[in-house]
């Protein structure tokens, strides 16, 4: 008797299926289409096979961009995760300061990407930017448009400013779920601050921390708007990350075929990394107690 109910359920799912088809599957197939053909304009296409893939995979440009991308994501994680934990640990747990902290932390997250980029672009300018001008006044030669190291530092500091609070807020959510009795027990056991962190706080933050790492990694791996607004990928190609390079190739040079192959490779890398993260996360999840109490 529950059979008709099942059929109706399929009808309910149809709009979503259609929506996904138009929003994801069809564009993706277009890209696949481009990636295996060549064109000289006039909507004339020629079969190119895996040529573009070979070209991209063996090109130095692609290797450099990939390396840059990984270094960038790694630095971002190495700074934002410990910093986020530290911020979360030092946040108050009760009183009116809690809401104040939460609001202040949430502010950078609410600003649109391009606005963040613009803020830092102006902030760092040597002529009128508060940061850039001040540093130069102090005798520190700082110019993100000419020095690749300055450009990197600017982009990284900007990302840390923009996103550390996400890590901090997630960790904070894990921390506040720890019952007071656990801290009390640790004090009775004469546990040091480090041990409290290592054996009580860190295990409780485990799950949220993994989510934070995953989110920050994926986001930083796909970063485009902010560095594009600030440095435009320069000086030279020094801050040309994956997506910036892709856009340059596709729109700047209009190399549709290689760009399509590039995006598919990009897509596959992200898919692979997501899968790795997912596996790691669910494995950690398995170890968790199933249910404390039947409820």
């Amino acid at each position: 008797m529950d059979k008709p109910v099942n059929h109706r359920a399929w009808f309910m799912v149809m709009p979503v299926v259609i929506l996904v088809a138009f929003s994801a599957v069809i564009p993706l197939m277009t890209v696949v289409n481009y990636s295996i053909q060549d064109t000289f304009g006039n909507n004339q296409f020629f079969w190119a096979g895996l040529e573009w893939f070979e070209q991209i995979l063996s090109s130095e440009r692609f290797h450099n961009a990939l390396l840059r991308q990984f270094v960038f994501s790694f630095i971002i994680l190495a700074i934002e995760v410990p910093l986020g934990i530290l911020v979360a640990l030092s946040m108050p747990k009760r009183g009116w300061t809690v809401s104040l902290c939460l609001v202040v932390m949430a502010l950078p997250l609410l600003i649109p990407w391009n606005v963040v980029g613009t803020i830092w672009q102006i902030f760092g300018r040597v002529d009128i930017g508060l940061l850039g001008a001040a540093l130069n006044e102090l005798g520190i030669g700082y110019n993100y448009t000419q020095n690749w190291l300055d450009a990197w530092i600017t982009v990284i500091v900007m990302d840390v400013w923009h996103w550390t609070s996400l890590v901090a807020l997630l960790c904070y959510a894990g921390l506040v779920s720890i019952p007071e009795a656990h801290y009390h027990a640790a004090r009775i056991d004469s546990a040091s601050r480090w041990k409290v962190f290592r054996y009580i706080e860190l295990p409780k933050m485990n799950r949220v921390l993994l989510i934070a790492i995953l989110l920050r990694f994926m986001d930083s791996f796909m970063i485009y708007t902010e560095p594009f607004v600030v440095t435009g990928g320069g000086p030279g190609n020094s801050t040309t990350f994956f997506s910036i390079d892709l856009v340059k190739m596709a729109i700047g040079q209009f190399d549709l075929g290689p760009a399509a192959a590039f995006s598919l490779i990009y897509f596959l890398i992200i898919l692979l990394l997501s899968w790795v993260f997912y596996t790691v996360m669910t494995n950690v999840g398995v170890e968790l107690p199933r249910r404390e109490k039947e409820s």
Binding site: A181, H182, R187, I188, Y199
Partner: peptide
């Protein structure tokens, strides 16, 4: 005196164990 200085032990309503140990 603080809890640490009192030299006591306590068992709580809901068990407190160090999960990862």
């Amino acid at each position: 005196l603080s809890t640490e200085e009192r030299n006591i032990a306590q068992v709580f309503q809901f068990p407190v164990v160090y999960d990862t140990m």
